[in-house]
């Protein structure tokens, strides 16, 4: 777990833009019966904006919903999608589950790791617990469970986009097409 800082060293909650508050309020309006129902969507909003959730984010969301920080923290730690450490600029998710495994997703995953310079053993050790980051900071990779596209296995997601029937040799061109370049 990282400390209470953003990339430039501050608390995330100290740099919330005005439109973020508007979006958070819009989300709250979707849950007229119980504000607590907005927990997951607010964590998503936070992570989409800041890249990960720091302790100040947990506190901010809890206060917004009249909850205790533990009520948010227990969600951040339970759900595989949420993370407390900063990922690389682009996130690669390769499906690990049966149909993709039969179609060679392990080779695909290893090819991704090799191409972006992440040690496979290190990546494996992170399964379900944070994400390793490539040395250039451009990539993170996860071996994830079923992405519900078994008929076009093996599949992976690069950021929000699904890629189907991906062969290991497609990896370099796929990365150059679908990821943002280094600064």
């Amino acid at each position: 777990m990282t400390g209470n800082t953003t990339a430039n060293g501050g608390r995330q909650a100290d740099s919330i833009p005005a439109n973020f508050i508007l979006e958070a309020n819009e989300i709250l309006s979707h849950y007229p019966v119980s504000k607590r129902s907005a927990s997951l969507p607010l964590i998503h909003l936070w992570q989409n904006h800041f890249g990960h959730i720091d302790p100040s984010g947990i506190e901010w969301i809890a206060a917004k919903l009249d909850l205790q920080p533990i009520n948010i923290y227990e969600l951040v730690t339970f759900y595989p999608w949420f993370r407390q450490t900063a990922p690389g600029k682009n996130i690669i998710r390769v499906c690990r589950t049966l149909s993709c495994a039969l179609a060679g997703s392990k080779d695909l995953y290893e090819k991704f790791c090799e191409t972006i310079g992440i040690d496979i053993e290190e990546a494996r050790a992170h399964h379900g617990d944070g994400m390793p980051v490539s040395p250039d900071g451009n990539y993170s990779i996860e071996f994830v469970e079923c992405l519900a596209s078994c008929g076009s296995a093996p599949v992976c997601m690069v950021n929000d986009e699904l890629h189907e029937r991906v062969a290991p040799e497609d990896v370099p061109s796929l990365l150059s097409r679908s990821t943002s370049p280094a600064n």
Binding site: S34, A38, S39, L40, Y79, P80, E145
Partner: peptide, 20 residues
């Protein structure tokens, strides 16, 4: 959702929707 298979179970999904 947020990446948890268990949320496909209907009562789990309800808990998830309640923010728990």
């Amino acid at each position: 959702g947020a990446g948890a298979y268990i949320c496909g179970e209907e009562t789990s999904l309800i808990e998830s929707l309640e923010g728990k």
